[in-house]
Design a protein around this nucleic acid. Structure first.
Lengths: 301, 301
DNA sequence: TATCCTCCATAAGGAGGTTTTATCCATGAG
DNA sequence: CTCATGGATAAAACCTCCTTATGGAGGATA
C-alpha cells in the first residue's frame, strides 16, 4: 500500500482529547494549551480529512458521524502509546544494568550488592561481568565499573574513584611452605608467578629493591586479577593482587600476603557513567550507595 | 491515573519508522525528511524516556532492550491510526449527504437522481428531505438544495441557481369540471385554494388583473409546495405551483394548468455548499452533474 | 592498509507550524 | 436583559522541528 500519510499528529492529539471531553475548552486544559489552539488544530484536521469532525452546537460540540467513527480508534491508539511508554518508564526506572570488571565483581561487589538490594528493593539489578570495555552507546548499560588510570579523562563521562588499585604479592600458605617459607622478597622469585608479564611485578620488585625485568616475560592481560587469585589460592604460583579485595581470603588462610609493602601505579577502580545521565534517580542511588560503601576501602590506605 | 504525558509525537513517529527500518536514513526517506532530523528526534525521545532506544553499532543501529519493547506497541498504535484515517477517508469520499427541500426532492431530484448514481456508482448518496434550513456547521451535510431569493448572498457559501421558482395555478381536472371548467382567472376564485395565504396567489392574480388580497388569508408556509400539489391532485383545491416540477403530472392528466401566465418573484431553487469545500471531488461531481441536468429547466423559460 | 563508502552525530540557522492574545459571536441561564 | 459559557477568528510571537553542512567511525574494496 502507498503511504496514507497521517494528518498532523498534533491535530490528531487535539481531536482525541476533544472527542473524549466533547469540549474544546476542557481538551485544551488537559493538553495544557488554550482553547483557541484546540479549535485551530481541529480545524486543521477537518480540512485534512475533508469533512467536519464536530458539529458545533450551542454551548457544546458533538461528534459528527465521521468524528464518531474516528474517535474510538484514535483514542485506542493513544491509549496504546500511553501505556507503552508508561510501562517502559516503569521498566527503565526499575532496572539497573551494571557492567563490572570481573575482579571487582567477584571480590567486592558480589559480597556487598545485597546491601544495595536491601536498601532499594524496588530496583532490579542486572550485573554483567566482563573484561570488555563497555561502550554506553553500543551496549545496554547504565553504569560501568572499570579499572583505569588516575584521572578518568573525559568530558562526557562522569567518573568516581572507588578504590586505588594497590598491589602486593600473595600466595597460598602451602606454596610458601614448599620453599620453607617466604622471608624476603627475593624468595618469591623461587616460585612461579601467575602472570609474570604483569608490570605490577616489575614495579613491586623494584620497590622492594629486587631486580626484575618484565620485558622478557610473557605479555600480561590486565583486568584478570581474579584469575590470578584463583591460581594463587590453588597453589599454582605467586599473584600480584589488590589487598583490599582479599582480606577475607587472607583471614581464612587461603592466601597469605608475606610483605606489608604495597605498590601503586595510579590505577584504580572507577564507577563511570555518561555525564548526561547523572541526574537519573537510579543512577544517583547506586552512585551514592557505592561511594558510601567503598569509603572504607579508600580510607584504609 | 495521572497524566503520563506522552513524549513529543514527532519524536515517537521518527522512532516508529526507525525501529521498523532499523535505519535512521531509511526512516528519514519514508518520512520525507533528512537523516539528521531523524537522528535528532530519536535523541529527543531517548532523553525523554531516559534510556537509549537504539544501540549504535557499526553501519547500523539495533534496538536496545527498551526500544525493542516499545517498538511493536508503537507501530501497532500507528497502524491503528493509519487504518482509521484511511477508512475514514474512504467513507467520506464515498458518501454524499444532501439536504433537499421537499418539493425539489419529490418532483425533480427523486426522478433524476438515478442518473447521477449511474454516472458515479462509487458514490453513496444519502438524501435528507426536510424543510428545515440546513446549517452546515451543525449538521452533517455536504450539499443543500434550498429555495431562496434572487442572489444567494453569502461570502462563505457558494450558490448555484438550479431553477427559477415561477408559479402558476394548477388543479385537478375533476375540480375544474365541477364548476364547468376554468375559463378565466377569476373562475379560480370560485374554488378553494390549497394555501390561500401564499403570496404567490396575490402576485399571480394581480398579474392576471384580478383583485386578490392575501392579507385577509391565513399565513402561508413557504416550501411546502409538494403538499399543496398533493392536495390539488386530490381535488381539494387550486394550488400555486412551479410548472417545471409538474410537467409529468400535467401530461398524465393528474393536474391541469389552465393558463399560460406564470408569475415570478425572484425566488428560485439553489444548490448551496460551503465555499471552502468547493474543490472536494464529490462536491464538484454532484455540482457539475446537477447543473448540467437542470439546464433544460433554466433554458425553457 | 589506504581509500572509499555508508551511516549516524552534531552545530548552526531558519522556516513554518503552533500557540497565545485579544476579541467577537451565539446561546442559554439567571 | 444581562451575564456567563463555549467556540471561532485574526494577528503576532514563539519555538519546535527541519535543513544544510560537516565530521567521525567502521566496514568494504582493491
Amino acid at each position: 500500500m502507498s503511504t496514507p500519510n497521517l494528518p498532523p499528529l498534533t491535530a490528531i492529539r487535539a481531536f482525541e482529547a476533544a472527542a473524549r471531553h466533547l469540549s474544546f475548552t476542557r481538551a485544551a486544559e488537559e493538553l495544557g494549551m488554550t482553547q483557541a489552539a484546540v479549535s485551530y488544530q481541529i480545524k486543521v484536521l477537518e480540512e485534512r480529512v475533508g469533512a467536519p469532525l464536530f458539529l458545533r452546537q450551542a454551548r457544546q460540540v458533538a461528534l459528527s458521524e465521521t468524528g464518531a467513527r474516528l474517535a474510538p480508534e484514535v483514542t485506542a491508539a493513544f491509549e496504546m502509546l500511553k501505556t507503552a511508554f508508561a510501562e517502559t518508564r516503569g521498566r527503565i526506572d526499575g532496572m539497573l544494568n551494571i557492567s563490572v570488571v570481573p575482579t571487582f565483581a567477584s571480590y567486592w561487589l558480589a559480597r556487598h550488592v545485597g546491601e544495595f538490594q536491601m536498601a532499594h528493593p524496588q530496583l532490579a539489578l542486572r550485573l554483567d561481568s566482563s573484561a570488555r570495555l563497555v561502550d554506553f552507546a553500543t551496549e545496554d548499560v547504565d553504569l560501568g565499573i572499570r579499572s583505569g588510570p588516575e584521572q578518568w579523562p573525559s568530558p562526557e563521562f562522569e567518573g568516581h574513584l572507588l578504590l586505588k588499585a594497590r598491589f602486593a604479592p600473595m600466595l597460598s600458605p602451602a606454596l610458601a611452605a614448599s620453599i620453607g617459607g617466604v622471608h624476603e622478597p627475593a624468595d618469591l622469585l623461587k616460585l612461579p608467578l601467575t602472570d609474570a608479564g604483569d608490570p605490577w611485578f616489575e614495579q613491586w620488585f623494584n620497590l622492594a629493591g629486587v631486580e626484575y625485568d618484565s620485558k622478557s616475560r610473557p605479555q600480561s592481560q590486565f583486568g584478570a586479577q581474579h584469575l590470578e587469585a584463583s591460581a594463587a589460592m590453588a597453589g599454582r604460583g605467586v599473584a600480584m593482587l589488590t589487598p583490599a579485595f582479599y582480606s577475607e581470603e587472607i583471614a581464612a588462610g587461603r592466601l597469605i600476603q608475606p610483605f606489608e609493602l604495597v605498590g601503586y601505579d595510579g590505577h584504580g577502580y572507577w564507577l563511570v557513567y555518561p555525564r548526561s545521565r547523572r541526574t537519573i534517580p537510579k543512577i544517583r542511588m547506586f552512585r551514592d550507595w557505592i561511594l558510601e560503601a567503598t569509603k572504607p576501602l579508600r580510607e584504609g590506605e
